[in-house]
Simulated scan of single mutants.
Amino acid sequence: MAELKRTPLFPVYKEYGGKTIDFGGWELPVQYTSILEEHEAVRTRAGLFDVSHMGEITVKGNDALANIQKWITNDASKLSVNQALYSPMCYDNGGCVDDLLVYKRDENDYLIVVNAANIEKDYDWMLKHSFGDVEISNISSQVAQLALQGPLAEKILQKLTDIHLTDIKYYWFRQNVPVAGIPALVSRTGYTGEDGFELYVDKDLAIDLWQKILEAGKEEGIVPVGLGARDTLRFEARLPLYGQEINETITPIEAGLGFFVKLDKGDFIGRDVLAKQKEEGAPRKLVGFEMIERGIPRTHYEVQVEGKRIGEVTSGTFSPTLKKNIGLAIVAAEHAQIGNEIDILIRNKKVKAVIVPTPFYKRKK
C-alpha cells in the first residue's frame, strides 16, 4: 500500500485529539471532538481547518492570462490585482477536469489553487494545453493553507494583524500580510458558507500560525475542525465537491454552475458543449432534496420515479443545522422540478424524498 501523504501540520493533530483517515491518499483529521460540535462551532463562532493538502500552481509570463482563459470557463480578464475568482476547468466534452480558484497576484502573475486529489492531473493538463510565453510551476509542496471560518473569524484574525481586515472584500486578498509576525497571503474566501479567510504561508511556518490563531480565538470559542464538518458545512451551502457534484462526466451547466461559464469571453476548452447546454438546456440537473421518510441518502444511491432510474445521489447526510436528512442528486432534467417527489434506493428499499430549493443553508449577512 502506498504511504499516505501528510501536511506540515500533521505533527500537531494528536495534540488536539485529531482522528485521521485516508482522504484521497492523504492522512488527514476527520474530526477532533465530534463532527456535530465542530460544524456548530463554525456556524456560530469560528473554526480553524488545515487545508494544506490543496494544490498551488503558479502561472507567470506575458501569455499567463491567455493560457488561463483557454483552460477555465470563467473570465479571468475581469480580475484586478489582489482579486480572486472561482471557476470550473473542463475537458472537450464539457465534463470537469477540476474546479479551482484563480488569484491575480500581479500583471502576468497568477496563483491557481486546485483540489488535492487532482494536483498532478491539473498540472499535467495545464502543461499539455499551454502555449507562448508562460511558466507553470507546481509549488504545492512549499505551501501550507489554513482556513479560518465562521462569524467571529474576522474578530479573531484582527487580533494578530495590523491591516484592517474589513477592507478585504469577499473574493479579494492581500499579499505579505504579517499575521502574528508570519507573512501570509490572506484571502476572504472559504468553503463553508460562512464569512472567513484562507491563509497561505510557507510550509515551515504553518504550525506556529496554527497555534497562534487557536490561542487568539480562545475567548471566542474557536475549535480545530476536521474533514467531516468541512463536508457537512460545504454541503449545506451547496458548494460542489469534485468527484461528487462535478466530475469528468458532469458539466458545470448540469451542476448548476452556469454563472461561472462565460461564453462571451472567447474560446476555451469545452466551450462548444457548454454553449449548446446553455442554449438548449442540459439533459441532467443537480437538485437538492429532503427525505420525507426515514433514511440517510449516500453518494451513488439510485434515484427513481415510478420504479424507473432517473439519476443518482451525489452527496447526502444528516444536516446538523437543519436537523434533517438531505441530499444533492444529479437527475434527468424533466424530473428536476421543485416539489417533485422522488424515491431514493437505500439498501434496495425505496425511501420517499421531495425536491427542495437550494442552498439548504444561507448565512445572514
Results as ranks from 00 to 15, higher is better:
Leu263Phe: 12
Pro359Asp: 12
Asp208Gln: 14
Ile222Pro: 12
Pro11Phe: 04
Ile326Gly: 06
Leu48Ser: 02
Leu148Arg: 10
Leu9Gln: 00
Lys121Phe: 12
Val351His: 07
Ile253Ser: 10
Cys90Met: 00
Lys278His: 12
Met54Ile: 05
Asn138Phe: 13
Val114Asp: 06
Thr189Tyr: 05
Glu236Gln: 14
Val134Phe: 08
Arg238Ile: 05
Lys308Phe: 13
Pro283Arg: 08
Ile136Glu: 04
Val201Thr: 14
Lys128Asn: 11
Leu100Ile: 02
Leu199Met: 15
Asp75Glu: 08
Thr317Cys: 11
Leu286Gly: 12
Thr166Phe: 11
Asn118Met: 11
Val177His: 01
Ala353Tyr: 07
Ala66Ile: 04
Lys262Asp: 13
Thr58Leu: 00
Gly270Val: 09
Trp26His: 05
Asn108Asp: 15
Glu40Arg: 14
Ile330Gln: 09
Asn93Tyr: 10
Arg45His: 06
Tyr200Leu: 14
His164Gln: 14
Pro359Thr: 07
Gly307Tyr: 10
Lys285Asn: 11
Gly95Ala: 03
Glu236Tyr: 09
Gly258Asn: 06
Val42Cys: 07
Lys276Asp: 12
Glu56Ser: 06
Asp343Tyr: 08
Gly61His: 04
His164Asp: 15
Leu9Cys: 08
Ser141Tyr: 14
Lys121Gln: 13
Gly18Ser: 03
Phe49Trp: 10
Arg6Gly: 00
Lys352Thr: 07
Phe260Pro: 01
Ala282His: 05
Met126Glu: 03
Gln31His: 14
Gly258Met: 08
Ile68Ala: 00
Arg188Gly: 03
Val81Pro: 09
Pro29His: 02
Asp264Asn: 15
Val113Thr: 12
Ser130Lys: 02
Asp195Arg: 01
Thr358Val: 15
Glu334Thr: 10
Ala147Gln: 11
Gly228Asp: 04
His335Asp: 08
Phe268Pro: 02
Lys218Cys: 06
Ala144Pro: 04
Ala116His: 08
Leu28Pro: 03
Arg174Ile: 01
Lys323Ser: 13
Cys96Asp: 01
Arg238Asp: 13
Pro29Ala: 05
Met54Trp: 09
Ile156Cys: 05
Arg234Lys: 11
Ile112Ser: 00
Lys364Arg: 06
Thr232Leu: 08
Gly327Asp: 02
Arg230Cys: 06
Lys365Thr: 12
Leu48Gln: 01
Gly281Ala: 13
Leu286Glu: 11
Gly270Asn: 06
Lys262Cys: 04
Phe173Tyr: 03
Ile156Leu: 04
Ile344Met: 06
Leu205His: 12
His300Ser: 15
Ala41Val: 14
Tyr32Leu: 04
Val186Ser: 03
Thr7Ser: 02
Arg271Gly: 03
Arg363Met: 10
Arg105Cys: 13
Ser137Pro: 00
Gln337Thr: 14
Ala153Thr: 08
Glu215Pro: 05
Ile57Leu: 00
Asp63Glu: 10
Leu233Arg: 07
Thr189Ile: 11
Gly221Ser: 11
Ser77Asn: 04
Gly339Leu: 08
Glu107Gln: 10
Leu209Pro: 05
Val313Lys: 01
Pro183Arg: 00
Thr58Met: 00
Glu198Trp: 03
Gly94Glu: 01
Gln145Glu: 12
Val201Gly: 09
Ser80Asn: 13
Trp125Gly: 02
Leu214Gly: 08
Asp75Ile: 05
